[in-house]
Design a protein around this nucleic acid. Structure first.
Lengths: 191, 191
DNA sequence: ACTCCTATTAGTACCTAGTGCTAGTAGCGG
DNA sequence: CCGCTACTAGCACTAGGTACTAATAGGAGT
C-alpha cells in the first residue's frame, strides 16, 4: 500500500514542521521508503538536514533572549535627566513589542518605558509606584520611535507625583500620572 | 602564558553559557590547549557536547512555543477563562522580573499580566486598552506566584471595562481597571 | 635520584546523521 | 523496445563528537 510521491512529500513537510527533530531514518520507516528517497524529497523541498533544523530553532530563541534580556533596568534609553525635575527617554518599537495580528505596540511596553523613567527620575535609593492613571491615546506602530517626557508634578515628604507624556513625532500617544513612594520612610505598599 | 586549570574551567563554563554554539575546536584555540584537554574539562564539568547543547536549547524553545503560542500573547498562563465574563492567570516571578537592588517585581510585569488578561477576556477580534487606573498595593518578591483575576464590569456597544485584581496568596498586591476598546467599530485611539 | 601524581597531549576506532555522487532496477506510456 | 520517472543501493567523505589507550612533562614527597 503505497502513497503517491506528491502525497508523501506533503506529509513529509507537515511531519517535519510539527517535529523538526525527526531523522531521515525515522521518516523512511514512517513512509515505508528508503532513506535515499527521503533525502531526495528533502532536497526537492529544500528542507535542511536534522542538525541544521535543530540549530535554526536554537538560534532563534538565542537571538530572542539577547534581544529581550538587556532590558537592564530602564526600558528605552534615557537621553536627558535632571533628578526630581524632568527626564526624557526614547524607545524604538520593534517586532517583539507588537501584537502579531495588527502590528500595534503592546501597552505594557509603553507603560514600562514611562514607569521606569518615572522610577529613574526619583532622586532616592528606592522608588516604588503606588498607583497610576494611564491613557493610551493613539496606537503606536512597529518601527515608530516613542519619546517619553517625564515631569515631577508634586512632591511631599513621602510621595512624588510624576507625569509622563509619550510622543511619536508631535503626536501624543500615551499619558500617565504615576504616584510614587520614596524609600526614606518605610514602605507599606507599591512596586 | 598559561592560566591554571581551575581558571580555564571557570572561563570555559562562562564561555559556553554565553554561547552554546562553540565547538571543542574553537575552545581549544581560544584557551591555547589541545582539544583533548577541552574534552576532559567538559567531562569534569558535566558539560554536554555541542550537538546536545544545541538540541537542549532547541527543545526548550520548542516546548515553550507549544506552551505559550497557543495562548498567543498573554503574559503569564491563563488557567481559566469565560469570554466576556471572567478569567484567571498565574505568573511566577523570576529573577528577570525584579529590580536587582531590592528583588521587588517591576511594575510593568504586573501591568502586563493584568493587561494581557484583560485583552484576552474581550471576545473580539481586536481589543485595545484606552485607559487604566492602577494600584500597586504591596511589593511582590522574587519567587512569588501572582494570581490575576479579571472580571468584566461594564460593557456598552464600543467599550468594555475590565477589573483585574492580582493576589499573592490571600494578599491583594495589585488592582487595575482597564477601559478597553473593541474593534467592531473603528478605533480612534488606544493600544 | 627515584617514584608518584596530575595535567596535558596524541592517536586510534567508532558513532550519528548526514552530503555528494554513481549506478542500478521497476513499472509504465507511447 | 525506448525513454522516463520513481525509487533503491552503495561508496567515499564530513563534522563533531565518544571511548579508550598511551605517552610525556613537571612538580611534590621521601
Amino acid at each position: 500500500m503505497k502513497i503517491s510521491k506528491k502525497e508523501r512529500q506533503d506529509k513529509l513537510q507537515l511531519t517535519i514542521a510539527d517535529n523538526p527533530f525527526v531523522t531521515d531514518d525515522d521518516l523512511a520507516k514512517r513512509f515505508n521508503v528508503s532513506v535515499q528517497t527521503i533525502r531526495l524529497d528533502r532536497m526537492e523541498l529544500s528542507i535542511p538536514e536534522l542538525r541544521e533544523r535543530i540549530k535554526n530553532v536554537a538560534e532563534q530563541t538565542f537571538e530572542d533572549e539577547v534581544r529581550s534580556l538587556p532590558i537592564g533596568e530602564v526600558i528605552g534609553e534615557i537621553i536627558d535627566i535632571e533628578l526630581d525635575e524632568n527626564a526624557i527617554s526614547i524607545f524604538d518599537v520593534k517586532e517583539e513589542h507588537v501584537f502579531q495580528r495588527n502590528q500595534i505596540t503592546r501597552g505594557h511596553h509603553l507603560f514600562a518605558q514611562a514607569n521606569s523613567l518615572a522610577v529613574a527620575l526619583i532622586d532616592d535609593e528606592l522608588a516604588l509606584t503606588a498607583s497610576a492613571q494611564l491613557h493610551f491615546n493613539k496606537p503606536v506602530q512597529i518601527g515608530e520611535r516613542v519619546i517619553a517626557k517625564a515631569k515631577v508634578r508634586r512632591k511631599d515628604d513621602r510621595r512624588t507625583t510624576v507625569e509622563v507624556r509619550s510622543y511619536v513625532g508631535q503626536m501624543l500617544v500615551f499619558r500617565g500620572e504615576f504616584d510614587m513612594y520614596r524609600s526614606t520612610t518605610q514602605v507599606e505598599g507599591g512596586i
